[in-house]
Design a binder for these strands. Sequence first.
DNA 1: TAGGCCATCTGGTCCT
DNA 2: AGGACCAGATGGCCTA
Length: 224
Amino acid sequence: MSPKVQCTPSDLCSSTHSLGRLSPNILSPVSEAGDSSEVYSEVLHEKAQTFSGGEAALMQNSKHKPRCEKPGLRGRRRMKANDRERHRMHNLNSALNALRSILPALPEDAKLTKIETLRFAHNYIWALTETLRMADQLGHTPDYLPLPASNLSSPTSVTSSEWDSASPADSCCWTSADFDPRNSYTSSPGKNCKTLTRHESSVFPLTFYVKSFCGEKDLRNTWQ
DNA sequence: TAGGCCATCTGGTCCT
DNA sequence: AGGACCAGATGGCCTA
């Protein structure tokens, strides 16, 4: 997926050009310090009032302008609540970005969406857990006994209904398609099933998992 | 142009 | 009372 270019408040704060075109309500600073404040909103409001008529009209018609501008205490509370909500959502997005950063690298133009990130992370954790479990079992079992995929069970308590569909473990085996974040949890359990070879079924799930995202590069040695 | 994704606003609810 | 959280609504941007 190619990156989307969207105007975020943090982007706009440093751009007087953009500042002149957008409502002051979307220009609250969003910093890690959490300095969104009523004061800042008021400063921006004052700033907006200094614009010419044409610019003011643009701001009136701009995106996310308050639908009902309430004067007085109620309006003040609403603006503060908006600031808090904005900051809260930015924190949530920061957490999502942090999560993206620790997931296996994807091609440059393949930034995961929010839902894809969550599903990918869920699958990834599952794969890691299975890898550890299989490694532990293989350490105590003869190497001629590769673990059949059907023995795998999802370690998570997340129900299929919570994720709209089944976990990867519900499939009879692993395929690249099973681990594509774009179709994980969206296809029916058992779909795209194929019979793995004895060798394939003995490979740690994480290897399949990583390979499915990193092209043909076999990261087996890297991840074990 | 339709649909997906996203940021933001908003009012309601719950909690401290 | 005020803050956190949530879900619905809205509108912009982008891609197929």
